[in-house]
Nucleic acid binder design. Structure first.
Lengths: 109, 109
DNA sequence: GGTCGAATATACATTGTAGAAGAAATGGCG
DNA sequence: CGCCATTTCTTCTACAATGTATATTCGACC
């Protein structure tokens, strides 16, 4: 069984999906991601990550209905699978283990 | 000035270096890293990361004295530069921003 | 048809990871 | 004493996985 290690962006995207709940589709994910990280992420980067996570079965997606607005094409909504949830939890725990005992000057918080 | 984004392993290595203080050299870093992440990291992986972070001037290193024990070759000690400290802080803050408001405490789903 | 929101395809750069090889030190034995 | 096996640590090299950007396609309005 291959260990499911997660990259920085992958983790970020998964967290954003959790934060968005329903309503987590490509463009919204990109926007929220950019907002939270204060960095400009391109749509391509986000979609590529979504695809890869889906291929690893850490995410699953469903196609929604078109919305009656100009350009209102059907959106693809993403959510974590059980496995995805587990992988993210593991990553978060590992992270905390690493931060443990360190005084990282997090002033922004 | 290129943005200094940090990968998962890069951040982990930097945190371990902070945790080790003096005494942060290749092998010790590998061991502590493996212990904290509960994963087996090879020396090659660690040294490559150390090299790259040094090239980006996020780390600096000094060569120590040989120790009078069998195989006691001189060790190379690493520590964060100011820039490295800054980059790590930024990464940690971004992370917190992402975790903010999420219920991530995974009770083994 | 034009253009707008959304998604897919493609290409290349950076990071992650492993295994093998090279260097410097000591200890033991002929 | 000289020398080589052994130990510890570092460097080199190669390839897989992630990160990132740009261009292209798709479908829905007006």
């Amino acid at each position: 069984m291959g260990r499911n290690t997660l990259g920085t962006l992958e983790q970020a995207v998964m967290m954003v999906i959790l934060a968005l709940g329903d309503g987590a589709y490509g463009v919204a994910i990109r926007d929220e991601l950019s907002r939270r990280t204060r960095r400009d992420h391109t749509l391509g980067a986000v979609y590529t990550t979504l695809d890869r996570l889906t291929a690893k079965e850490l995410l699953e997606s469903t196609l929604g209905e078109p919305t009656p607005t100009r350009g209102g094409r059907a959106k693809r909504y993403f959510k974590l699978t059980g496995e995805g949830r587990q992988a993210l939890d593991h990553a978060v725990n590992a992270r905390h283990e690493l931060e443990y005992g360190l005084d990282l000057i997090g002033k922004g918080v």
